[in-house]
Computed example of a mutant assay.
Amino acid sequence: MANQIVHVPNGAAALDYFFNDKRRPDQHDKTVILLDLNLPEIDGFEILRRLKADEHTKNIPVIVLTTTDNPKDIDECYALGCNVYMTKPVGYEAFADAIRKLGLMLNVVKVPHNQG
């Protein structure tokens, strides 16, 4: 199957995507999550907390990609189990460069398979 990007509009939709009873746990074996902390309805901290607390989703790599560089937020994300924390650059060119670098990193980094 080809790589696929799934975009969800808010935190509630993200939780529904990962914890919908109809979805099999093995459907997330090759998943990598790009998570913004500033989501409507349910924030990224709560999503990260729930993902890492659940047996079926705890091994999914989570890359926090957000606008804040507050050290308290960074520390909390790593304490909750995020794998990488990136601050979104403001300008388009800097953002595009950061995404290119993220793509290169994802090509060489080995991620765990879910233990389901």
Rank of each mutant, 00 (worst) to 15 (best):
P89M: 14
I47N: 02
N59M: 10
D75E: 15
K101P: 00
F95D: 04
A12N: 07
D29P: 00
C82M: 10
G91T: 08
I42T: 11
K52M: 05
E93Y: 07
D29K: 12
L34M: 14
E46L: 01
N10I: 03
L48E: 08
D43A: 06
R49K: 15
P71V: 11
P61L: 05
N20C: 01
L48Q: 07
D69E: 14
R49P: 01
A79I: 01
R50C: 05
G81L: 06
L35M: 14
K110N: 14
Y78M: 13
N59Y: 13
A12M: 02
Y85E: 04
H113W: 04
E93Q: 13
R100W: 01
L80T: 10
E55D: 11
T31S: 13
T68H: 06
K110F: 03
N70W: 03
R23S: 09
L35N: 07
L80P: 09
T66M: 05
P71G: 06
R50V: 03
K52L: 08
P61Y: 08
I74D: 12
A79C: 02
A96Y: 09
L35S: 04
A96F: 06
G11N: 02
E76H: 14
D26E: 14
L39V: 04
N20T: 00
T31K: 07
D73F: 02
V90M: 10
L102A: 07
V64D: 05
T68D: 10
L35A: 07
R100D: 14
D54S: 08
V64K: 10
K52E: 02
D97K: 13
K88D: 06
V84N: 05
D75C: 08
N107F: 00
C82I: 05
G44K: 04
L80N: 10
T66R: 05
L106P: 01
C82R: 06
A53P: 01
N70I: 04
K101M: 00
T66A: 08
R23Q: 12
T57R: 05
Q27D: 15
V62W: 09
V109C: 14
I5S: 08
M105A: 10
L65Y: 11
L34C: 12
G81M: 09
I5E: 02
H7T: 14
I5L: 14
V109L: 15
D97Q: 09
D69V: 04
L15G: 06
Q27A: 15
I47S: 02
I42M: 05
G11L: 02
T87A: 15
H28W: 15
Q4A: 10
C82Y: 06
G103V: 01
K52Q: 03
L35D: 07
T87H: 05
V90K: 14
L51V: 11
Y17Q: 12
N107P: 00
I47P: 02
R24M: 02
T31I: 06
L48R: 08
P25K: 04
N83M: 11
F18C: 08
A98S: 15
D26V: 09
D73E: 15
P112N: 13
F19D: 12
T68Y: 05
N38D: 11
I47D: 04
I60V: 14
L39A: 09
I60E: 07
L65G: 01
Q27M: 13
D54T: 00
K88L: 04
T67I: 12
L37Y: 03
P89N: 13
L65C: 01
V90G: 09
N10S: 13
M86N: 03
A14I: 03
